[in-house]
Lab assay of single mutants.
Amino acid sequence: MQRVNMIMAESPGLITICLLGYLLSAECTVFLDHENANKILNRPKRYNSGKLEEFVQGNLERECMEEKCSFEEAREVFENTERTTEFWKQYVDGDQCESNPCLNGGSCKDDINSYECWCPFGFEGKNCELDVTCNIKNGRCEQFCKNSADNKVVCSCTEGYRLAENQKSCEPAVPFPCGRVSVSQTSKLTRAETVFPDVDYVNSTEAETILDNITQSTQSFNDFTRVVGGEDAKPGQFPWQVVLNGKVDAFCGGSIVNEKWIVTAAHCVETGVKITVVAGEHNIEETEHTEQKRNVIRIIPHHNYNAAINKYNHDIALLELDEPLVLNSYVTPICIADKEYTNIFLKFGSGYVSGWGRVFHKGRSALVLQYLRVPLVDRATCLRSTKFTIYNNMFCAGFHEGGRDSCQGDSGGPHVTEVEGTSFLTGIISWGEECAMKGKYGIYTKVSRYVNWIKEKTKLT
């Protein structure tokens, strides 16, 4: 034993070699072989497995989906700052455009905790909710729209109204504003409101030439003092309507412009014939205590009207009353817009006519005020429907199939267009061939041609 100890002390290297040989010859039971080890760690190889990531292109799944990435790591994937920024906006807080917040056709661009709407022409605001041009839906104005110097929408209202708090709607500024039905039992019968379409306001006024200088022999019209197929109006439903009495009662109609003036057809009036105007009328054979009678003290036909040349060209006249009318729910003026808007309103496509005229061709006159909704007829169809001249200051309205029309005794009465609950004068009943005849239409004086003249002559002093 002493000898062994001496050998170990003198030859430590020998001992180490012996131990190493023993270990190498022993069977290893701690580690699995290569094949079995792979069965336990069965993990798919990654895209760049075996390579240094710093030297390969980034992978979106590896960089940002398996674990949260930084902007720089995302930049490695896209290799483009702009594309990385677009991805980053949604990656950080989701897609803010998912709810489609942009209105009126706006395009949404996502941002971090926010979004941006790219608005089409005519709109602005956070969600493109603000109209900035009158060309689109009248700028959301209830009545009139004008573009300011910086191309912003400025709404306005006709006389007797003021802008509401929203700067879009119009509200009454006087007790009985024009064009409004205020009798409670008839307010439910107000005709369907007309909503502004998209309009090209630059070209809204037709490029028409008034044929002022045409000389033409007097034409022989049949029954051209021209509501057939209409309905009984309720008291106060058309408070701007008046009836004219002269040699015979209810020979023509008219509309209240203001307390002192009536507008009617020029062919209705004769110099030297006494005319009485009755406002607030409903049943011409009954006294309903809503009527107001006034005498006409002055007749002003349009300066281009000449019955000797043509009885229905420039067929418009103004009547001055001896005493002002007292405005109330049964006696209310009709609204008159400017030339541009009167023309736009007419193009809405349908209007209402009213009167006490004959209820059928050569038949009896109506006792109760009649009204009828009539569609506008395109000019080409209008011209083809008659052998008589249709001037540019006239328009056609009615039904091709016949059966409904204005008729004798309705002449001078109103053709009105309702705009968001307020009625505007767009025409004056003038003439036609018979009444409600198939293929024939009622012919009306186009008020847009005469609004400046009306307003100039009827100013209240």
Rank of each mutant, 00 (worst) to 15 (best):
M8C: 14
M8W: 12
A9P: 12
L14K: 02
I17G: 00
G21D: 01
Y22C: 09
Y22Q: 09
L23W: 04
L23R: 01
L24A: 07
S25V: 12
A26K: 00
A26C: 10
V30N: 15
F31H: 10
K39Q: 08
P44N: 08
S49D: 15
G50A: 11
L52R: 12
E54D: 12
N59F: 08
L60T: 13
L60H: 15
L60W: 11
M65K: 11
E67P: 05
E72Q: 13
E72F: 15
R75N: 14
E79H: 14
T84H: 14
E86P: 15
K89I: 06
V92R: 10
Q96A: 12
C97Y: 02
E98Y: 13
C102A: 01
C102K: 01
C102I: 01
G105D: 07
D111T: 06
S114R: 09
C119F: 01
K126M: 04
C128M: 02
D131W: 09
C134K: 02
I136H: 13
N138K: 14
Q143W: 00
S148G: 10
A149I: 09
N151P: 05
N151V: 05
T158Y: 03
E159K: 04
E159I: 06
R162S: 10
R162H: 07
N166Y: 02
Q167H: 07
S169R: 10
P172F: 04
A173M: 11
V174D: 07
R180K: 09
R180M: 04
R180W: 04
S182K: 04
S184T: 07
R191H: 07
V195T: 08
V199N: 12
V199G: 11
Y201T: 05
N203D: 05
E208C: 15
D212C: 13
I214S: 08
S217E: 08
F221H: 10
T225Q: 12
R226I: 09
D232L: 05
D232H: 04
A233C: 05
P235F: 07
P235E: 08
P235M: 09
F238M: 11
P239S: 02
Q241R: 04
V243S: 09
N245D: 06
D249S: 07
D249P: 12
D249W: 03
G253H: 09
G254M: 01
K260G: 02
V263L: 11
V263M: 02
C268F: 00
E270W: 10
E270G: 06
V273K: 12
K274I: 08
K274Q: 07
I275T: 04
T276N: 07
V277Q: 00
V278W: 06
G280I: 02
I284D: 09
E288L: 07
H289S: 13
K293W: 07
R294V: 02
N295M: 07
H303S: 08
N304G: 05
A308T: 13
N310G: 07
K311A: 12
Y312E: 03
D315V: 00
P324M: 04
S329P: 14
I336K: 00
K339T: 13
Y341D: 13
N343F: 03
L346S: 06
F348N: 14
S350D: 06
G351W: 01
G351Y: 01
S354F: 13
W356Y: 05
R358G: 14
F360D: 14
H361M: 13
H361F: 07
K362Q: 04
R364I: 12
S365N: 11
R373C: 04
R373T: 13
V374S: 06
A380C: 12
T381N: 15
L383G: 14
F388R: 13
M394D: 01
F395P: 02
F395W: 02
A397R: 02
E401T: 13
G402E: 14
G403T: 14
S406N: 14
Q408G: 10
G409Y: 13
G409C: 14
S411Q: 08
G412A: 14
H415G: 02
G421K: 13
C435W: 02
M437S: 05
K438C: 14
K446W: 01
S448H: 13
R449C: 15
R449Q: 15
N452A: 10
K459W: 05
T461W: 07
